[in-house]
Design a protein around this nucleic acid. Structure first.
Lengths: 193, 193
DNA sequence: AAGGAGAATTGACATTTGTTAAGAATGTGT
DNA sequence: ACACATTCTTAACAAATGTCAATTCTCCTT
């Protein structure tokens, strides 16, 4: 269960965490299983945990008069949480739920802080995570303002093809900011090319 | 010139930086003046500096076959840089230039690191900056995928009305991901309401 | 102050995307 | 395995946004 986290830490820092340190890390995390559709976070709650996905798939979305808008999708080795709510302890405007049955590792902000402060490798991991996240968001903004729906879909096919296997099309459409009908049409059009 | 930076540090950390510490901080920064349209960063270059805007306005944009796509706008007390290029030393795909004559304070990543490591107040400032930036980007993504062009404009009017005073409409349109013509129509429609 | 460049507006039309509704296909739980 | 849910597709139409071209407006530069 924890092995995936160890691999993640080593991979994104290019150095090896010691067994002793990793033991301390694992003690800060709590394993949890979510069944499909189970909520990890509901609108109005404070997001107390950050979740490292060991197995499964999750999504983060707002719900505005019946319409779901997916701001983020995650699978194995991704972190899920509403960072704003998690760091500032404010009520979240988002929902996060399991798209598939999931095994995740949960950690609170309070348990994370001492790890970051005492272990350079963890501080480094967080820095890298934040950086990657920030770069990905910037790219998504750029795509949203500069590309057509079709080009955004093509970009997703290129950069995260695995999402198309793991998430139903209506969620992919929402993630791209279009309706399921539009995505269906776009796919049809691309198929003939 | 440096006073704006001192105020910024104090404001976003709710504690006061000492004169001695601030002296060290100012030594890490270099003041620079940009005239309107002058480039701070051009596509293909590495973004060596982060710029704290003391006076003036700047924009960050990509240029894809003649079309400018503005990913970020900044005025007094904002930071401008391509964070990806700045932190990873990779060539940037963006341009940053002065929309008005600007006075800015420049700092390299190498000069920033020791400040962050030796002064908790600076580390805190960076954390707060990153957090605010990250929250703003998340909101922008959410707006892009869930709102119409009109609603995105209304949101901008509410959250950053000063931008409408400082940037020409074609830049506002680009920032919102629409054409200047569309923005003009939206404004006309709203005026009659 | 005049001339010129850039910026904003407007209109006609094209294209993209959304909406609604229906049916087909697929998947899921018991 | 069955029945029910959900998901996906399709079509016709509506609405939003883009494109192109012409005109007016604004403001900079000299």
């Amino acid at each position: 269960m924890y092995e995936a986290l160890r691999i993640y830490i080593n991979k994104y820092t290019s150095s090896e965490i010691s067994d002793a340190d990793f033991e301390i890390v694992t003690n800060a995390f709590t394993p949890k299983h979510f069944i499909k559709r189970q909520f990890f976070l509901q609108e109005g709650e404070v997001c107390k945990y950050s979740a490292f996905i060991v197995k499964g798939a999750m999504r983060q979305y707002s719900l505005v008069n019946g319409v779901e808008n997916i701001v983020s999708l995650g699978i194995e080795n991704w972190w899920m949480s509403d960072r704003e709510s998690y760091a500032m302890l404010t009520p979240s405007q988002y929902n996060i739920d399991a798209v598939e049955d999931c095994d995740v590792l949960l950690v609170t902000y309070e348990k994370m802080v001492p790890l970051v402060e005492s272990m350079p490798i963890i501080a480094r991991m967080i820095t890298m995570m934040d950086q990657r996240h920030s770069i990905a968001m910037q790219k998504r903004i750029h795509n949203a303002i500069s590309l057509t729906a079709e080009d955004r879909f093509l970009d997703l096919m290129k950069t995260n093809p695995v999402f198309l296997q793991r998430f139903p099309q209506n969620m992919i459409a929402s993630y791209l900011g279009i309706t399921p009908e539009s995505l269906s049409r776009i796919r049809k059009k691309l198929a003939t090319k």
